[in-house]
């Protein structure tokens, strides 16, 4: 028997957030006595790095260092409402809410600084290093710790802000079906290269190469992490994961985590990716979103690559060795190989 190689391609257009919209998120910001800006959210970080990117967006809008921002997602019962961390919506929706809250908090911060420096708030700017200074004379400045202390104990004021974002729910025209389903779309294309062992039906993914257009990247390292992790997850769905594999009887189905087949480090293919940034018009600093989509396109790309390798169209995944061996019985390529041998 032989090892057959194939290449497959798949593309995805990924709409950020809930279909038709109507999925709000809120944010509250307040400064502590020592000038830490606490951003309260109910938006949970699942490991995708939401706390990091939200702190970046908050710091950028407030004009304070990243280290001065603390994200508090401690309790979804008591925090400001968030629809949830799904549909790649969090950076887009929550980021917009945080920008709105941060603008209000920044205004309050500059008003206190104006009193301390005896100028108009319009004459002030932030240096992003923890100071507020008078435009044109940067030596006249106040650091945010002194400012927060003054706000609390001298002026009796809060430095705080409220923010929310909602894409209003789009109605669907019952006559025409016309609607506004999404706020922004990210795009990607994945090319998979595979090798199929015609003896065992096993597939080795040799490489997954991709191009992603995700709007502005707030944090390129985290975007890359999503793409690599998602590629692996997609491969896992394409080839392995199911609670109902094709086996002679249901007794053979996995009954626990230990028997549920997922790939490990040995199955890691060569993963390569380039990211294009076309900022969205309604995302925070041009964000679109990248998360769920990274596990989407690798699946059809791999299935297409296997179909290309064996010459038989496969329409059901995961493409387990059992399914491939059955498909190989119909493969013209395998028939050709057998004829050549005999």
């Amino acid at each position: 028997m032989a090892k057959l190689r194939g290449t497959g391609i798949a593309a995805v257009n990924y709409p950020t957030g809930m279909n038709l919209g109507g999925d709000p998120s809120q944010a509250l910001i307040h400064a502590t006595t020592t000038g830490t800006f606490v951003i309260s959210l109910s938006s949970t970080d699942l490991g995708q790095g939401l706390k990091t990117v939200i702190a970046q967006i908050g710091a950028e809008t407030l004009g304070v260092p990243f280290e001065n921002v603390l994200i508090d997602t401690a309790d979804t019962d008591t925090g400001p409402h968030c629809m949830g961390t799904f549909a790649s919506r969090a950076t887009h929706r929550v980021g917009n809410a945080v920008i709105m809250a941060a603008k209000e908090a920044r205004k309050a911060m500059l008003e206190v600084a104006a009193e301390e420096l005896e100028v108009s708030p319009d004459d002030l700017d932030t240096d992003g290093k923890g100071n507020i200074f008078v435009k044109g004379s940067p030596e006249r400045k106040i650091d945010i710790t002194s400012l927060a202390l003054a706000a609390h104990f001298k002026y009796g004021r809060t430095i705080s802000g409220r923010g929310m974002y909602i894409k209003p729910k789009s109605p669907v025209d019952p006559e025409t079906g016309k609607m506004d389903p999404d706020s922004t779309e990210a795009h990607a294309c994945v090319v998979a290269e595979v090798e199929v062992d015609t003896e065992t039906g096993e597939v080795t993914v040799i490489s997954l190469k991709s191009a992603y257009e995700v709007g502005r990247q707030v944090n390129p390292a985290l975007v890359h992490g999503q793409i690599v992790g998602g590629a692996f997850m997609g491969m896992s769905h394409a080839l392995y994961e199911t609670t109902a594999p094709y086996y002679p009887s249901p007794d053979h189905a996995p009954g626990s985590f230990s028997e549920y087949i997922i790939p490990g480090p040995h199955e890691l293919p060569h993963i390569e990716s380039v990211v294009l940034e076309y900022p969205s018009v309604n995302g925070p600093y041009g964000v679109k979103g990248v998360g769920e989509m990274t596990a989407n396109a690798p699946i059809p790309a791999i299935v297409n690559a296997v179909s290309n390798a064996i010459g038989v169209r496969l329409t059901e995944y995961p493409i387990t060795p059992e399914k491939i061996l059955r498909a190989l019985e119909k493969s013209p390529k395998v028939k050709q190989l057998a004829e050549n041998r005999s």
């Binding site: 690599v228 992790g229 590629a231 997922i262 490990g264 993963i271």
Partner: peptide, 14 residues
């Protein structure tokens, strides 16, 4: 690390 399941990173960064 073959006995360690990681569902997020795809192992490459590990």
């Amino acid at each position: 690390i073959a006995g360690n399941v990681c569902r997020c990173t795809g192992y490459e960064p590990i």
